[in-house]
Design a protein around this nucleic acid. Structure first.
Length: 590
RNA sequence: GGGGGCGUGGCGAAGAUGGUUAUCGCGCCGGCCUGUCAAGCCGGAGACCGCGGGUUCAAGUCCCGUCGCUCCCGCCA
């Protein structure tokens, strides 16, 4: 390589470099042979530079040039020259390199797909040949954005006095929440480590250890079904602080986000972020991770039910439910088909149906309007609707009605292009309930985790009405995604005991699973709290992508498989034996 | 666990109501070409239409099953 080492890269040369002699290393991106004169677009991470092999080039260079194919890796030496016809579309478009020597560093087989920004290969093919996919400038840009983001995180938190501390990835399995990934312990037959779902317990123990400002760019593992915004393994910007209130955590997070967006994207985020109570988020937007870049808020329709003749709505209300209305501006011409598509969306989220009526100059028309003949103008006025609008109604238990209507709202927002791309709308969701009712087991479950602090006003009466207790817990949402979740933690053993007791968590069981944390809390634990923004989702949103696979170098597909190295895979008998394992699966392929 | 979409040369797609040589663009191979930059022009090769079964005189097309990818619900404290 000594002879062919690059003196500059493919995105650097400009008109001012005319006359200088350079060596470039890169890949053959395009190859245009005109018989007499031959052009090569040479590409590396930094850009593309045009190489010219003219009639007066050395014979060896001309022969080599004629043999080049896509993605050959080559070294080129020559003189920088101004182009006769500059290409304004590329930064290096004013110059070209007149090659006098071309060396093939390695050849390349016929490609499974073209390396291009607008690569149209299907995703599993891109995954299988990820190394080729990563060569495209769009993937390079996303990896760079991710790097800039983690750099900005460290830059900001370091300046705030945080310590970056690593926590173990082989830990005790505490089967709460998601399923654990498990690792057999060879030295301890029949025993297993688990991979962390998050560094939660360790970061709290770091607080007891006096590390009052901690962060970690932490890999987390959850053995659950994947989604566009969920992977088996993902990365959190894990943070925890001692002697803080919710507001301190908010302002550190806001400052960090503002710094990330400013330095990685050049986008100035307005801070502080707005705060929306959980209950209000569901009532107005039908989601605890609302998309706030358009309005079309949900409105209560309950007031019009007693005076109507629609038995379906009446019985929902009698059963303690609610009716939510949504006004789709200008959708009065929607066809039966379009409305039934929206109904399918509502049904997906558990609604039994989607009622509708159209607003006309004369009042209400079609759908369920015949049940509301007494009060059309009141309804129109109260919903702030206008002729040409479509009113959509979901009647169900509160949570179902809200989320189903919220899903329809989101669908309409997308269909009607109400969302401005390239913009970001952040908000804190606060005042989550601490407990939620588990109807199947007829008991209270922790809504978040068992170390979440109840809000102060409820401390004296936790046991009386668990369903009404609000938690010192918060989510950060952006563009309809949950970007971060956190809470102030319980550090008082007495409160902890009461919470265990309310959710029916046996003290012996607690000791077995979290004993080490509870033990630590006997030794002067500081009040503390934290938050963990998801790095993959954050970068995905900044990149304008809809899948976190686009911002992970080597992601797994939706079935939890990596098509490139074909993992997971079977292991051989000897390995199993050494681990004291026997496989009982019915299905075992090679 | 459940539902929707997709599967056609190496890649991306087209193939109404079943009908005879399965089409197009890119790529690939051969040739021509002195200024292109998504180069152009001429010629060529390449497909058991995901797999298995069925209906039919006849299936890429219809039916059943199955596998894979993808989106969503459940799940993800």
């Amino acid at each position: 390589m000594e002879d062919h080492k690059r003196t500059t890269h493919c995105g650097a040369l400009r008109a001012g470099d005319e006359g200088s002699r350079v060596t470039l290393n890169g890949w053959v991106h395009r190859n245009r042979d005109h018989g007499g004169v031959h052009f090569i677009d040479l590409r590396d991470r930094y850009g593309i530079t045009q190489i010219v092999i003219g009639e007066d080039a050395p014979e060896a260079a001309r022969t080599t040039a004629a043999s080049l194919k896509f993605e050959y890796c080559v070294a080129v030496t020559g003189k920088v020259s101004k182009r006769l016809t500059p290409n304004p579309k590329v930064p290096t478009g004013e110059i070209e390199v007149l090659a006098d020597s071309i060396t093939v560093l390695s050849t390349c087989d016929v490609l499974p797909f073209m390396i291009d920004d607008k690569c149209d290969a299907k995703e599993d093919l891109r995954m299988k040949y990820r190394y080729l996919d990563l060569r495209s400038s769009s993937m390079q840009r996303k990896l760079e954005l991710r790097h800039k983001t983690t750099f900005a995180v460290r830059e900001y938190l370091n300046a705030q006095g945080f310590l970056e501390i690593e926590t173990p990835t082989l830990i005790k399995s505490t089967p709460e929440g998601a399923r654990d990934f498990v690792v057999p312990a060879r030295l301890h037959p029949g025993k297993f480590f688990a991979l962390p779902q998050s560094p939660q317990l360790f970061k709290q123990i770091l607080m007891v250890g006096g590390c009052d400002k901690y962060y970690q760019i932490a890999r987390c593992y959850r053995d659950e079904d994947a989604r566009g915004d969920r992977q088996l393994e993902f990365t959190q910007i894990d943070m925890e602080m001692s002697f803080v209130s919710k507001d301190d955590i908010f302002s550190v997070t806001e400052g960090m986000m503002a710094h990330i967006f400013s330095s990685a994207l050049g986008y100035e985020l307005p801070v502080p972020f707005r705060r929306i109570p959980y209950h209000e988020a569901l009532n107005r937007f039908g989601s605890d991770k609302p998309e706030l870049r358009f309005d079309m808020e949900l409105v209560s329709f309950d007031a019009f039910v007693p005076g109507c003749s629609f038995q379906v709505f009446k019985s929902v209300l009698d059963g303690g439910g609610t009716v939510k209305a949504l006004v789709a501006k200008g959708c009065g011409e929607y066809s039966r088909k379009q409305i039934s598509d929206l109904e399918e969306v509502a049904k997906t989220y558990g609604a039994k149906g989607l009622a509708w009526m159209k607003v006309t100059d004369d009042g209400l028309d079609g759908g369920v309007s015949k049940f509301f003949t007494d009060q059309p103008q009141d309804i129109i006025k109260s919903l702030n609707a206008a002729p040409g609008d479509l009113v959509l109604l979901v009647a169900d238990q509160w949570q179902t009605a809200c989320t189903a209507a919220g899903a329809v709202r989101l669908r309409l927002g997308k269909d009607l292009s109400l969302i401005q791309p390239g913009t970001f709308s952040f908000a804190w969701i606060i005042d989550f309930p601490l407990f939620e009712w588990n109807a199947e087991e007829e008991k209270w479950d922790p809504a978040h985790h068992m170390f979440t602090m109840p809000q102060k006003p409820y401390l004296s009466s936790l046991e009386e009405k668990p369903g009404e207790v609000l938690a010192d817990m918060y989510d950060l949402v952006c563009n309809g995604y949950e970007l971060a979740s956190g809470s102030i933690r319980v550090h008082d053993p007495e409160i902890q005991k009461r919470i265990f007791s309310i959710v029916g968590f046996d003290p012996e069981e607690a000791k077995k699973r979290f004993g080490f944390l509870l033990e630590a809390f006997k030794y002067g634990p500081p009040p503390h709290g934290g938050i963990a923004p998801g790095l993959d989702r954050l970068v995905m949103i900044m990149a304008g992508e809809e899948s976190i696979r686009e911002v992970i170098a080597f992601p797994k597909n939706t079935n939890g498989i990596s098509p490139m190295e074909d993992s997971p895979s079977v292991i051989d008998e000897a390995q199993l034996k050494e681990l004291h394992l026997a496989v009982t699966a019915e299905k075992m392929e090679e």
